[in-house]
């Protein structure tokens, strides 16, 4: 086959008609407080791991809640569970618990 050097990218849109939200709902059911996140970014600002790697806790859990699970487990593995994020969260979310929960629920993705 002749290779013309062109490729087609996968659409980047978060497609809520296609995404399977079952796992997201399971996570929310166990920790409804996660929905109270107002995306202020305090957790990411204080994150020790985020200072050294691309890890962005806020972004990963928001994507998970939209049914975008791929890579979430690996991302959450960057967390060192120091718990500083939990100290700063203005909504009082148990962020460390969220990390553990996502790792538990999304290991196979």
């Amino acid at each position: 086959m002749i290779q013309w050097g062109y490729t087609i990218n996968q659409p980047r849109a978060v497609n809520l008609d296609r995404n399977d939200l079952t796992a997201a709902r399971r996570i929310i059911r166990q920790m409804p407080e996660l929905q109270a996140c107002i995306a202020c970014g305090s957790c990411t600002a204080t994150c020790t791991a985020g200072n050294l790697t691309q890890f962005n806790f806020r972004k990963v859990h928001t994507l998970v809640r939209r049914g975008e699970y791929e890579g979430a487990y690996e991302e959450m593995n960057k967390c060192m569970l120091c718990g500083k994020c939990r100290l700063v969260c203005p909504r009082g979310i148990n962020t460390r618990g969220v990390v553990m929960l996502i790792k538990r629920e999304l290991g196979e993705y």
Binding site: V14, L63, R66
Partner: peptide, 15 residues
Amino acid sequence: IKAEDTLVGRPLKMS
């Protein structure tokens, strides 16, 4: 409907 989910920096669509 189409929007950008600005907090994750990706376009989003749904019916």
